[in-house]
Measured scan of single mutants.
Amino acid sequence: MLDDRARMEAAKKEKVEQILAEFQLQEEDLKKVMRRMQKEMDRGLRLETHEEASVKMLPTYVRSTPEGSEVGDFLSLDLGGTNFRVMLVKVGEGEEGQWSVKTKHQMYSIPEDAMTGTAEMLFDYISECISDFLDKHQMKHKKLPLGFTFSFPVRHEDIDKGILLNWTKGFKASGAEGNNVVGLLRDAIKRRGDFEMDVVAMVNDTVATMISCYYEDHQCEVGMIVGTGCNACYMEEMQNVELVEGDEGRMCVNTEWGAFGDSGELDEFLLEYDRLVDESSANPGQQLYEKLIGGKYMGELVRLVLLRLVDENLLFHGEASEQLRTRGAFETRFVSQVESDTGDRKQIYNILSTLGLRPSTTDCDIVRRACESVSTRAAHMCSAGLAGVINRMRESRSEDVMRITVGVDGSVYKLHPSFKERFHASVRRLTPSCEITFIESEEGSGRGAALVSAVACKKACMLGQ
């Protein structure tokens, strides 16, 4: 009897593995994704193909990295998701002549009506938060230079001027797309009239992360975010950046690689679950690469896999709870928690219980395998993109072996128990001629924006502006 049951459990697990095998990517698959990513990057950089390229390769006008001589107080704003952060950054000489960066910050959550109302409502709310922060720190009387981390696709015309191309991540505030974001912020500050600010720089969160990590390690020339969304930036040779005049030196390019796949480059790798996630998203047909990796989508992918296993009578005796059938019910943090389970399955059992399920031991094991399959594919897909960037940098610099540091931020990278190990191992397999160091950014977005502002202020002083 026991043997029969054991055989049935083994057969069930084997069927589960057959279904989950769809998520496995072979090294040849990853090399294919990497080569296609490089081709799209090239198209994004070139003037004649930029418009139709899915990977936009947006110039950021960040050319210099901090040298350690900029000092002063800077205000930093960070808008990239449902939370908005205001930070005071003091850049100065530390002990023994070292450079020191001290920060104080406060988080504000953005109400739904500000995210989806008008641009005026959104930026009025942001300036209200700045006003509140300055009151708390008794700094209303000071006109501070301000660095703005704005983590949406922007076409820069200068370091302090950028046109919002399109909202992502659930934002829909009308009247912002096609307009200068810094102008919208300046107008809102003017409307309030109770404080003055000098907006000197606007950067993407990947750029802010790279600059913040450069402060720790001067070989950091790539910034990457794996959180709600997924994106990367890197220092490109100016001669390859056709959208900006000049051939000397390097400029940081914001790849906006989340949109890779929007022209069909990933079609052969998309599964039924991916198509369902895409169809029910706020932007169907867009940001397809990001939807395979980002935390906004990972939990939902797992939920759809679990429903398939229920329908195949391989999980929960073929019956799903009402909660499990509800879109968004299986949160991405559950994926991390399930994979963090120590082996007694308590954590998995508790999560499934909150979803109205009474799982068996085998159910718990199957749910864990589903989570591992989805998150491992995410790590491997992400590795193909980064390997594409790094191999490109090595080739354009004609280096036999390139040493490089990548600064990384984002909740999936930082909080998932195995993502970074799987990701690092896969990147290294795909970049055999590179020695890569990964560092995690601390308060990256805010500190990085302030350091970019410090560079901009120093330049302005040198130019006598």
Rank of each mutant, 00 (worst) to 15 (best):
V244A: 15
H218R: 06
I351K: 04
L271W: 00
K13N: 05
V452K: 13
V241P: 00
K102N: 11
S426F: 06
V401L: 10
T103S: 07
H156D: 07
N391G: 06
H50S: 05
T49E: 04
E290W: 13
T376M: 03
L122Q: 06
A21I: 14
L77R: 00
F150E: 15
K296E: 08
D409W: 03
E40Q: 01
D29N: 08
W99V: 07
S360W: 08
G444W: 08
T431M: 03
T326G: 09
R345L: 09
V335E: 03
T405W: 01
L324W: 06
L79M: 09
C371V: 05
G147I: 03
A6T: 15
D344Y: 08
K172E: 05
M34W: 04
K90D: 03
V16D: 01
F150T: 14
L75W: 01
A119M: 11
G264P: 08
I293Q: 15
G92F: 08
S280G: 13
L266G: 01
F74D: 00
Y297M: 14
M202N: 02
A21W: 11
E331Q: 09
K458Q: 11
A320S: 11
L2M: 02
A6R: 11
D132I: 10
K32I: 05
L77T: 05
P111H: 15
R5L: 15
A449F: 10
F84E: 00
C220G: 01
V335W: 06
T326M: 09
I390V: 06
H380N: 14
E372Y: 01
G162Q: 12
D198L: 01
E196A: 08
R63C: 00
R397V: 08
N179S: 13
L307V: 08
E157P: 14
A460N: 09
A173E: 08
L415Y: 07
R345W: 03
L463M: 14
K140C: 05
E128V: 04
V33Y: 01
D124E: 06
K15C: 14
I130M: 10
N254S: 04
R392K: 12
M37I: 14
F150A: 15
R325D: 06
R250G: 05
V302L: 05
G94E: 03
A378T: 11
D160M: 09
H137E: 14
W257Q: 05
E372C: 05
G294I: 06
E248W: 05
M462Y: 14
L47W: 15
P153S: 11
D363Y: 01
S411L: 06
E300V: 00
T255L: 15
A188N: 04
R392D: 01
D363L: 01
N313D: 08
C252A: 04
D400R: 07
F150W: 15
Q286F: 14
V335R: 02
S64T: 15
G318N: 09
S373W: 03
K56E: 09
Y289F: 15
S64Y: 12
R428H: 10
R345N: 05
E48S: 15
E237R: 05
Y108T: 04
S426T: 11
E440H: 14
V226A: 04
V203L: 02
D124A: 03
E14R: 14
L307E: 09
K143I: 00
F123W: 11
D278I: 03
A11Y: 14
D409A: 12
P145I: 00
K291R: 12
I130V: 05
S411P: 09
V401T: 07
A259R: 10
K90G: 03
E256F: 14
T332E: 12
E331H: 15
R43M: 12
A449E: 07
A329I: 14
Q347S: 07
M381F: 11
L415V: 09
F84Q: 03
M34G: 04
G81C: 15
I19M: 03
R63G: 00
T376G: 08
G294L: 10
H416C: 12
Y413L: 11
H416F: 10
L144I: 13
E331W: 15
V427C: 09
T103I: 08
G227F: 00
G285D: 14
R186K: 07
A456S: 09
K32M: 05
Q26S: 11
T209P: 00
R429C: 12
C233Y: 00
F84A: 08
D267T: 14
P284V: 12
F171Y: 06
S375C: 07
L271H: 02
A387V: 01
L463V: 10
D262L: 13
F152C: 09
V335M: 09
A370E: 00
T149H: 14
F84M: 14
S433N: 15
N166G: 13
S383T: 13
R368L: 07
A114C: 14
N313M: 06
V154E: 09
Y214G: 08
A379K: 02
Q239E: 08
K140V: 06
Y61W: 06
A10K: 13
K31R: 07
T326H: 03
I189R: 05
L47F: 11
K414Y: 15
K161I: 15
V91N: 01
R394G: 03
L134D: 04
C230F: 13
I211G: 00
H218Q: 03
F438Q: 02
K13V: 14
V101F: 03
S383V: 05
K143D: 01
R333A: 14
L165V: 09
V302E: 02
L451W: 11
D160N: 13
T361L: 06
T342Q: 04
I366C: 04
S383L: 01
Q323V: 08
D365A: 07
I19R: 09
E435G: 07
D267Q: 08
G264E: 04
V305W: 00
A450H: 12
A456C: 11
V89D: 02
Q26V: 04
D262T: 11
T326A: 10
A384D: 00
